[in-house]
Each structure stands twice: as C-alpha cells, then as structure tokens.
Design a binder for these strands. Sequence first.
DNA 1: GTACACATGTAAGGAGTTACATGATTTG
DNA 2: CAAATCATGTAACTCCTTACATGTGTAC
Lengths: 189, 189
Amino acid sequence: MALRHAVLAALLGEELSGYQLAKAFDLGVANFWHALPQQLYAELTRLEHDGLVSGREVVQDTRPTKRLFTVTDAGLAELERFAATHNKPSFIRDDLLVKVQAADHIAADVLIAKLTERAVFADAKIDLLGGLLRKLRGDMSEEEFLRYGERVGPYLTCLRGIAFEQGNRDWCRRSAAILEQRRTAHARG
Amino acid sequence: MALRHAVLAALLGEELSGYQLAKAFDLGVANFWHALPQQLYAELTRLEHDGLVSGREVVQDTRPTKRLFTVTDAGLAELERFAATHNKPSFIRDDLLVKVQAADHIAADVLIAKLTERAVFADAKIDLLGGLLRKLRGDMSEEEFLRYGERVGPYLTCLRGIAFEQGNRDWCRRSAAILEQRRTAHARG
DNA sequence: GTACACATGTAAGGAGTTACATGATTTG
DNA sequence: CAAATCATGTAACTCCTTACATGTGTAC
C-alpha cells in the first residue's frame, strides 16, 4: 500500500480531481511515483472511504462533473506515520538496461537506436522538469527558494527527477558511443 | 513478462542455479532488475518449460542437489526479439521520495534521518558495485575494457547502477542539508 | 549450539497493467 | 471533421510481495 502515500503526498497543499492527479502522475509527479488513472480513481475512492482524503463534487456547465480532493487531518497523520517507517531501497527496473545487459549477444545497431531514443526522451523530460522548477520557485533564485520558499518538498523531488534523467541521458549517450566504437572496430577487424 | 528477459539476460554467458541467480538479483544484478528468489524459481521453471533455458541437475555430496541453467538458442532469439520492442520509460518508485514530497507538512528530523540513512546505504552499494567493475575488467583499464573487453553488457549496466547510487547519495546529502538549514532557521526565527 | 550459507519451492494476497466503456467540448 | 481534452470508472489478468515450509553442512 505505497500508492496511498504517494497520492496523499501529491495532494498536499492543493485540491485536485482524479483527472488532474492522473496528469501529474503521468508527467510531473512521476519523479517520485508513477501510476495509471485507473489506479488513482480506485485509490481515491478507498482513501475517501478511510477518511484520509475528503472529496467534494463540483458541477460544471461545459465540462463533466468532477470531484476535488483534499487531504484530511487523518491523512496527514497517516503520512507522518509513514515517514517514520523503514524505507525499502529503491531498485531500478528498466527494460532498456535488460537489453544492454545482453549487449554482447545481440545486434548492436538495435541497441544503439534504443539508447539514442532514450537519450532524446530524457532531454525532453529534463526540459519539462526544468520548467516545473522555475514555476515552483517563481522569481526567487534556487538558493533563496531552498532556504525560504514554501513547498520545498515538490522542488526537491523534482531536482531528483532531473538528476535521474541527466544520469539516464549521459549513460545512454556514452553507452551508445562505446557500442558504436566496438561495432566499427569489429567490422574492420 | 519482463522478468523473463531479465533472467535470460542475467544468465547469458554463464551457467547458474536458481540460488545463485537469486543472489545476483538481490545484490549485483539489481542494477538492472530486482526480483525475489520465489519469482526466480518460478520463472526458471516456466522458461525451461518454454524451451528458452535448459537446466541440468547437479548432485553434490555435501550440498543439496541443484539445477544449473543456460540460455538456449530459442532463448537468445527471444532476447533478440525483445531488444527490438518499444521501451517503456523507466519510472522511479521510491518510498523516500514520497516522504520528501511531503517535507513541508511533516517533521523534518525524521526525514533528515531517513535521507542520511539512505546516503550511507548508497555509499555501501557504490563500493560493492565498484568491486564488481574491477572484477569484470580484470587487469585492464576501464577504457581498454570498454573497447576490447568481452562482456561489456554487464559492465555498462553496472556503470549505470553506480551513477544511480551516486545520484541518490548526492541528492540525499543535499536535501538533508537543506532541510536541516530550514529547521534551524525556523527554530531561531 | 546458534547463526548463516546452500538449495528449492508452495500458497495467499496485494499491487500494477491492459483492455474496455461512455460521452460532451474544444482545438487545429 | 478528426483529434485531443475533460472526466470517471469496471473487469480481467498478470505480476510482485509476504509468509510459510524443509533440511543439511559449515563457520564462529
């Protein structure tokens, strides 16, 4: 039951619908957790049932009726309790790494293409998250924001997301270059 | 069914038992995938049934009988096919990040402790993986190994694992320092 | 003689993914 | 007029985790 805490954390300080939450979990919030819309709708229902969030219906004229959720005091207490529990180490689980692990036994060109593709994707995400950072800190400098700003939590997780993607990108580019070099050497030798 | 490909990739170029594989997936191989022993035993049975690996019994006198597995030609073909499939983007899923996301609403000392703990863990893992790298490249330099060495696949995934843990460690230390600074300022002001 | 390493699983339950379902409105 | 956005779900299935089960040999 870790998704519940991710949802609670994402919902802190703002009032969001399942749909908005789903967008956040797809793009931005995916820095600290990833989940599909179906999971979120189900989890929100459960959280409301358990009294950890409370939802209110908002009828709109041009759009379908939506439900906006906020974290309750009980929800905040649950997060506080969760924060003190033991962390599971975070493992990477990545298709692309599996493919690279097999690099000595499969076609290099396919791998190089996948690595390049991922590097491009990483760059796009870095840009996206960079925009999110700027939005979070407003007209403050990063140093100033980290000292005095409100909502440093989302800022810090966003920084981790960016660093992660930079790591991805750099590793992808380097690995692609190495495989390319070896392929060329092999073709010659 | 991504675990199957992870198992196939881990098994390439060596003959391992379920037990040995489980150790690898727990510590070293966890750079590119993570799985528990029970999953691996079950997956190996399925892979053997599907003809992607073949196992042979080895009776030992002082130890229980074990089964050693190798990847078959069909298994290699399956990996080759897999390599060409679309990558899912790799998302972080991390308890600790969820906790930091909530940083503005929960007790700082608990978070700082968790971040410090994780940084120490990351350092230990960096050491471990560093040893693995040295073992893989033998007496070659890194540059030499990456050009001419055999089994660059595992080396590259190990490099990613190290960079990931370095990213974790640096972010944990920095985040802890920031939260500490804010806590102190808050106590004073 | 207690704990750890070797060695392999079963069973139950919780979490995540894929596919399907509906329907109005706005943007290109 | 096709595609994307808003808005919320159900159902089936696969995958992962937690708990349990068993037994010998070796190291401290």
